[in-house]
């Protein structure tokens, strides 16, 4: 078995690999004389990013806000539905097939419906990212709640604990790792939903910018949009990973020193 590398060396290597990737891209494109209409070089994309930032920034904010609003709505509603379904065996058994059915609908298909209902713009984008975020949260929360040990529940019920007490003291904390696992998925999916809806039916946001740029054959701008999306995606993912670490340290038993 390979020994894991120390953290700083891992980070250094990852960073070098990234730089190497861009260098290779740049060098290959220049050597082979690839047209900027097919694949612009990283240095050009960077120039466009800096040059067009005043125009791109509001769209970046738009995409970020849409994603976050959709995500929070999705998590809130998903948590509610998850708690309702997960706190009763019967509800769980009845609702689970329904959930699986809903979640297997390709979410692109809901965008036209939202456009019909609300017109194109920000609202369909928010709703799309919300809908995509709901399902992983519901499924994970419900599963976490449904697997609470019956013996512990007996101990608490005999003490006179209300359903709410058990939910608050046992159910929800136990669900946290599941919830955070789902948050990461929900956040990245909400992001996909936003960009999707922006591309199809909006006049704002990075998705829309990329759509228009591609219509104008402004390939470097398309790639600049892609870079912004990648940066946003990485940032969102890191934040959720950070939160997960902070709140569910107890699942990593024995790893290092425990949080006091």
């Amino acid at each position: 078995m390979n020994k894991p590398l120390p953290r700083w060396r891992r980070n250094l290597l990852s960073f070098s690999a990234m730089i190497g990737f861009f260098l290779l891209w740049e060098v290959l494109c220049r050597l082979l004389g690839v047209s900027e209409l097919v694949l612009p070089v990283p240095s050009q994309i960077a120039a466009v990013l800096i040059d067009k930032m005043p125009i791109l920034w509001p769209h970046t904010q738009q995409t970020l806000m849409t994603t976050l609003i959709g995500f929070f709505l999705g998590v809130f509603i998903g948590l509610l539905i998850g708690v309702i379904i997960g706190s009763s065996r019967v509800a769980y058994d009845i609702a689970y097939p329904l959930l699986v059915g809903f979640s297997s609908i390709p979410k692109v298909a809901v965008v036209p419906i939202f456009v019909v209902w609300f017109g194109s713009g920000t609202i369909p984008a928010i709703l799309t990212s919300m809908v995509i975020g709901i399902f992983p949260v519901v499924v994970n929360v419900a599963t976490g709640l449904a697997t609470t040990e019956p013996e512990l529940e007996d101990v608490l019920r005999v003490l006179g604990a209300k359903k709410r007490d058990i939910l608050w003291n046992v159910g929800l904390p136990r669900t946290l790792p599941y919830l955070f696992a789902s948050l990461k998925i929900a956040l990245t999916s909400a992001f996909i939903g936003t960009v999707l809806a922006e591309t199809v039916a909006s006049n704002k946001g990075i998705g829309n910018v990329m759509m228009i740029a591609s219509g104008n054959f402004d390939v470097p701008l398309v790639f600049a949009g892609l870079f912004i999306l990648a940066a946003l995606g990485v940032a969102l993912y890191s934040v959720s990973a950070l939160l997960e670490n902070r709140f569910t340290s107890w699942t990593q038993r024995g790893k290092g020193s425990e949080a006091a």
Binding site: E149, E151, V155, P173, R174
Partner: peptide, 14 residues
Amino acid sequence: RLGLAFQNPTMLPW
């Protein structure tokens, strides 16, 4: 007032 204990101690890990 009642107190209960089972074979499985069911401590909350967090």
